[in-house]
Computed example of a mutant assay.
Amino acid sequence: MDSTIDEAACRWHDALLRDGYCIIPDLVGEDAVAALSADLDPVFERTPLSEGLFYGNATRRFHGLLARTPHAAAFVGHPLILAIARAVLTECDAIQLNLTQAVELMPGAPMQPPHRDEEMWPLRTPGVEYLINVMWPFVPYTAGNGATLVWPGSHRREPEPSEAPVAAKMRPGTALLFLGSTLHGGGANRSPYPRRGMIVSYSLGWLKPYELPWLAYPPAVARTFSREIAALAGYRAHRPNLGTWEGRCPSFLLGCASVQPPGACDTLRPEQEAAIRAFMDMQQGPVRQEPR
């Protein structure tokens, strides 16, 4: 890892764990955001309004952004973002992409109910972070157009009822990171214009992700990804033997057109392999010495 990225990752990692969120300014160029946003413009236009109490009927949301625009990969695989995510999400063999979601808050959209994204999973271990969200704005986020609201420190405690959240004011190119344990919600859009942006989230590799990656990115699509992006998008077995296909790491599907794989091959962690070898050695017993 580049030493500059390593130092920056440590600094932002510490801020993220201290406050439950951090805002990294000018992380990518505005031209890169504009190119990504332009590719998604027609998708926004044809996407129906969402439904349900949580999403509300004044937002548009769609997923699978890696398959919709080649510009998404630079955001999903941003080296600093991945370094921070891997430093926080340590209770796994490898992190995974939880979702990519484009969001549009229409004028008049009300404030989203405050929530913690880790509540998607019914079991949690105190002190273990399950998820990191990254919000990338396509337009300036302001308190008036529905900037994401976060409650500082809420990953460690329940905020007081009178405690006001912080509106994450950002311009395109800046990124908001917040933990799955942090209380947050979209703000109300009181402006006359839509507020568009993108959420990319990463989770522990052994959790069921929000977005099923093999449906969002079947092998024919994933073959166009870099090795790192394909692994994040589900084409990597999580040791021991989770997320396999025919007993093999699903990355097999990216390098071979054959539908018939070789025999199953287990995928174990080093300490598991060592324990199995020790067990097998014990079963063999001591070597008998023949008399001379």
Rank of each mutant, 00 (worst) to 15 (best):
A233D: 09
E271G: 02
C249V: 04
M280L: 15
W245N: 02
C256T: 15
E158C: 01
G197R: 01
G247F: 08
A188Q: 08
I276N: 13
A168H: 05
P240A: 13
G205M: 01
P192C: 09
Y235P: 03
G153C: 05
G173C: 08
G187N: 04
T267P: 01
L179M: 13
R248K: 13
F225C: 07
S251C: 15
R223H: 08
L179E: 06
G205A: 00
P218Y: 13
I199A: 09
A222W: 04
P261C: 02
S251R: 00
V166Y: 08
L215S: 14
T142V: 01
L242E: 05
F225E: 04
T182V: 14
S191Y: 05
P165Q: 12
L183Q: 10
G180W: 03
T148Y: 01
T267E: 05
E271Q: 15
G243E: 03
P262W: 07
W206A: 04
L215T: 15
L242N: 00
E158R: 14
G144D: 08
G255M: 11
A231D: 05
E163D: 02
A278F: 13
A167I: 03
S154F: 08
Q260N: 14
V259Y: 12
G185M: 09
L242P: 08
R190Q: 13
P250A: 13
P192L: 12
S162L: 13
V221Q: 09
D281Y: 09
I229M: 01
Y217E: 07
Y141E: 02
A231M: 05
F138N: 06
G205R: 01
S191C: 10
P165G: 11
A237P: 04
A237E: 02
